[in-house]
Every structure is written in structure tokens, then in C-alpha cells.
Amino acid sequence: MAERFTKSMARNIYLGGSTFFILLFLVLTFDTQSRAMPERDNRDQLTEEVVRGKHVWENNNCVGCHSLMGEGAYFAPELANVFDRRGAADSDVFKAYMNAWMNAMPTNVPGRRQMPQFNLTDQEINDLSSFLEWTSKIDDNGWPPNIEG
């Protein structure tokens, strides 16, 4: 680097640049959280059931195999759109499907990936289904590209 570019100039770029972008990030975060998100995440439908379902999702570490909106592990299918894929976008169909699925695990087919039996109660399965249904309705800029997730 040229001699006239001094250490204190480098330090000022660091301090000025990082301060500016931290502030910008905070402003954008404020805008995202307070103005934009309420219109996109249908929080008016965030019922008790959905909240309990999120805890079922977390307490069983579902994200350790599955992805949800593309985040998580890539060992098992994406679940943010499973309501559309397996439930035909119908609450009752989806809940019936989930009940059958969760109770049928594991398949014990030799050599295949296995989903553990989590021994969820009917209500927990119901809550989890509501959580996944709510998640499927978040405006996520049209992701995933197709129904397979």
C-alpha cells in the first residue's frame, strides 16, 4: 500500500464504516420488524395452538433433520410447505395426515433413513400441525420454487 495511506486513515475507515453500517442495520431492522413484518407473517393468526406447536417443534429438535423455510438440516424434507404438499392446503386433511404419519414412525425399512417415534399426544400433533400450517402462510417471497421444497 502507498506510504501516504496511513494507519490512522485505515483505522478511521474501520471506525467510521462499521459505525455507519451498524446504525443502518439497526434502522433497517426497525423498519423490517415494525412496519413490514406484520403485513407478511399473518401474525393475527398466531394462535395459542400455533405457539404450542412451535414448542413441540423445538422440544423434539425437528430442525436437526428437517429444514424449515430452507434453514436447518438437509437430511429430511423441507416442512414450511408440507401443509400444501401433504395436506392439500386443507387443515383437516393435513391433521389427519400428520396423525397417521407421526404414529407410523419409524418405518424400520432396512437401509432407509429413519424418523424416530416421538410419542406425541394427539394434542401435540394437532398443535404441531397448526404451527406448520401457519408457517406455510408466511410471505417468503415465493420460496420454495416448487411443491417439493
Partner: peptide, 12 residues
């Protein structure tokens, strides 16, 4: 897929 299942499931 079922290597070490159910002792050590993938998520663990």
C-alpha cells in the same frame, strides 16, 4: 440411512 438407528438418530 438406518446406521446406528435408533441409538444415535441423525439429529443427535
Amino acid at each position: 440411512g438406518d446406521f446406528l438407528f435408533p441409538e444415535i438418530p441423525f439429529n443427535v
